[in-house]
Amino acid sequence: MTAELVLQIVLTVAAGLIGVGLFGALSQQTIVMVMMGLELVLNGVLLAGGAAWYFLAPELPDAQMLVVVALVVMAVEMAMGFAVTVAFYRARQLDMIDMASDLRG
């Protein structure tokens, strides 16, 4: 099997994760489920970054750094998402994004 074919298969899997995550983030109504969709998108980025490092430029650390940044973004998204969820619930007893549509910018 050629390296290019394996790379394309892995990247297609990553694209699948990004597509599924985007569907979830756009369609779910509860805040925590929206966050799970965003996490799936970042999961796809992790996979694509790892594949890019192995198949395209293993002599450079840049793709590994991208994976590290994606991991940190996941942690920050999770922490801030839950903080906002708790603050929302405390202020209005809501857990659905449709109930907070008056916050639209």
């Binding site: 569907f23 756009l26 369609s27 109504q29």
Partner: peptide, 25 residues
């Protein structure tokens, strides 16, 4: 099921996947 605009979201998700897959291949 607690979803809104499921068809539109599915279309966006599938569209992004197809776009990325076309680029990848």
């Amino acid at each position: 099921t607690m979803v809104h605009n499921a068809k539109g979201s599915a279309a966006v998700g599938a569209g992004v996947f197809v776009l990325l897959a076309v680029g990848i291949w």
